[in-house]
Amino acid sequence: MDEPESKVWNGLFWVIQLFICINAVAKSFLQESKGRMLYFYSIASPADFVLAKLLFNSLLMLLMSLLSLLLFILFLGNPLQKAGQFVGLVLLGGWSLSLVFTFLAAIAAKAQQNAAIMAVLGFPIIIPQLLLLMKLSSAAFAPLLIIPLNTVLLLIALDVMVVLLAVILFPFLWKD
């Protein structure tokens, strides 16, 4: 079998990451029963609750990212020139995706909708970050290109902002 060239590999990888994230993270809010939410409501503050969710989903997504990277390398070959940097970007990307989608899952769960509305809400918001990640990670396939640090910092700043927004805005979703 032919192995896909590096551009296709990269694009495919990030699209699969996106779908992994939607399916993995959507569970976190949509599967909670009403009774359990009430229990959480009585024992924790909204900020603590959302931080715990963000933390759990981040770890879950980091694990999933590494797993899918492993499967990609096993099944589609390894076009990576700078594996270490790419793994770092994969972890950063997985973290970004999981943060954004955790908060969107909270919104979708409150709207009493299925995972479909989460995709509708999330796709447009995540595309800019995904474009940045793809552009960054394409540098990991060429030996001479260097990954621009500014863009990495920009992504980290966006992630920090998402966490802050989640902590500020979640209390409004929480009370019913």
């Binding site: 919104i107 809400l121 800019p128 940045l132 966006l158 902002m161 927004l165 805005l169 409004f172 979703l173």
Partner: peptide, 25 residues
């Protein structure tokens, strides 16, 4: 309530992204 939350969240993520992103690509 929910749409106000989404409005704020979307604005805060989107606008930095669409102001910065086109200057990088």
């Amino acid at each position: 309530r929910i749409s106000a939350v989404y409005n704020i969240f979307a604005y805060a993520i989107l606008f930095p992204a669409i102001w910065i992103l086109p200057r990088i690509l």
